[in-house]
Design a protein around this nucleic acid. Structure first.
Length: 417
RNA sequence: GGCGGAUUGCCAGAGUGGUCAAUUGGGCUUGACUGUAAAUCAAGUGUCCUUUAGCUACGCAGGUUCGAACCCUGCAUCCGCCA
């Protein structure tokens, strides 16, 4: 079986596209060796091969179609060889569906200059963000042209990541969809830096990722095909975003091209829709319309709408889980902080219209007690609720696109909120 | 009954003459969280308020001093040890 044939194990079919209001919007099906993903879809994040506090079986029951883990974290612990021996990420964690891995590219930023997440902030926040950026000596990631040197956040040990290493790790982990190793810049970086980052790192690293992927795919010929997505950077500059999309859409090594695209990096909050639109439009023009697009690390409700409307097929984000653990629970009208005093004796569910396990059985008062007490069951219940909320929202978006009543669904959603 | 030690803000616990409305924890209140260094982090927490100003506060009542949470006297309560 040659590379091109291998590649057909991965497939994306658009079922319905375009809407009078949103020309880029679409709904389809991604097929992977471990199952299908109906899009648009939200992919919960299981960084260390677990959704913290919630079993894969429950995640499945909440409507999760796939999960996303992280190559950096899994390489540190338990080591990709363990996942390989276990039969891959899905087998290892008892998840039967499709899986994604991030390349470790996010850690280039989050362990580097990006202390508090400096990706999707508003312009007014940028001065604050500057203060938040760590001093050089606190940084744990150091970038050079060839790759990134990490100081392990676990034991300080030196860890090297290059596109080749990332792909080797990701192949061993065995996820169905992998991402190219990229540099995630921040809005604090100058345009000049963004240009340099693309030309000297993200683009060449993309090609090297693809090259490594081609070799590894040949070497691991008996394994199911693992798809590789390029990552589009370019911050909030239209010319850079378009240029990158075009460049990576045409990239090819040994007859192998990217199977899909991740949209990542510094996104000015207020211009998210526009920025995604540039990427999608350019990918369409570059004859890459029939390849899936993943918006990396986004799940705020308004951002999900923006993404879907501008041609995003899949999303992932840690927020539903992390915010749940920290007591922020989603409801159609707003996010509530369950730790607030007013919920101490509120014996109603988080959201009486929610169909999740938590809302069916537990009250706000109980949740408030558990979360404030630091009880792990509280984190579990809260995470179940938030993940269900986002999964269901995106599911409903998909259904409404397929039914041709997206606009109606959207209006209704915001009317109820 | 005698000797010794204690009593500080919601709790624990620093502070032993002015720089103390009082260090630090915890609790409590409110925020934040977008490819997870996050079950994390930040701010606030006597009162009145426009304040760098007042007022009230370190068991209670007096006293010494320009000035007291801090020194002295008495009282109350608690804890040791000896009878």
């Amino acid at each position: 079986m040659n590379l091109a044939e291998k590649q057909t194990e991965f497939d994306f079919k658009i079922r319905r596209k375009g809407d009078p209001h949103f020309l880029l919007m679409r709904s389809g099906v991604i097929t992977t060796p471990h199952g299908r993903i109906e899009t648009p879809a939200f992919i919960p994040v299981a960084t260390r091969a677990t959704i913290k506090g919630v079993s894969p079986e429950i995640m499945h029951s909440l409507g999760a179609q796939a999960l996303l883990a992280n190559a950096y974290h899994l390489r540190l612990r338990p080591g990709e060889d363990i996942l390989d021996s276990a039969g891959g990420l899905g087998r290892f964690m008892n998840w039967n569906g499709p899986t994604f891995t991030d390349s470790g590219g996010f850690q280039v930023m989050s362990l580097g200059v990006g202390f508090k997440k400096v990706i999707a902030m508003s312009v007014e926040e940028s001065s604050t963000a500057e203060k938040l950026a760590p001093k050089k000596k606190e940084q744990l990631a150091f970038i050079d042209q060839d790759g990134v040197t990490f100081k392990s956040h676990l034991d300080g040990g030196i860890l090297r990541f290059t596109p080749e290493i990332s792909l080797e790790v990701q192949h061993a982990i065995g996820a169905d969809i992998m991402f190219a190793f990229d540099e995630l810049t921040t809005l604090l970086h100058s345009r000049q830096y963004q240009v340099e980052s693309l030309e000297v790192r993200t683009h060449p690293w993309g090609i090297r990722s693809l090259q490594a992927h081609a070799e590894l795919t040949k070497k691991r010929a008996k394994k199911p095909y693992q798809a590789l997505f390029a990552v589009l950077q370019g911050a909030n500059f239209e010319d850079l975003r378009r240029q990158t999309a075009r460049y990576l859409a045409h990239a090819q090594v040994d007859g192998l091209d990217f199977d899909g695209f991740g949209i990542g990096g510094a996104l000015e909050k207020e211009r998210l829709a526009e920025i995604i639109g540039w990427c999608a439009d350019e990918l369409n023009s570059a004859d890459a319309e029939e390849k899936p697009r993943h918006l990396l690390g986004i799940s705020a409700v308004s951002d999900l709408f923006s993404g879907v409307e501008n041609g995003v097929d899949t999303f992932d984000c840690v927020s539903p889980a992390r915010e749940a653990r920290n007591g922020a629970l989603y409801t159609p009208s707003k996010r509530i902080n369950i730790k607030n005093a007013k919920y101490r004796a509120d014996f109603t569910p988080i959201d009486d219209r929610c169909d999740c396990y938590t809302c069916a059985h537990y009250t706000k008062a109980y949740l408030a007690h558990l979360i404030k007490s630091g009880e792990m069951f509280g984190a579990t219940l809260a995470t179940i609720h938030n993940e269900r909320f986002i999964l269901q929202l995106v599911d409903n978006m998909r259904k409404s696109i397929q039914n041709g009543n997206y606009q109606e669904f959207k209006e209704q959603f915001f009317a109820n909120s």
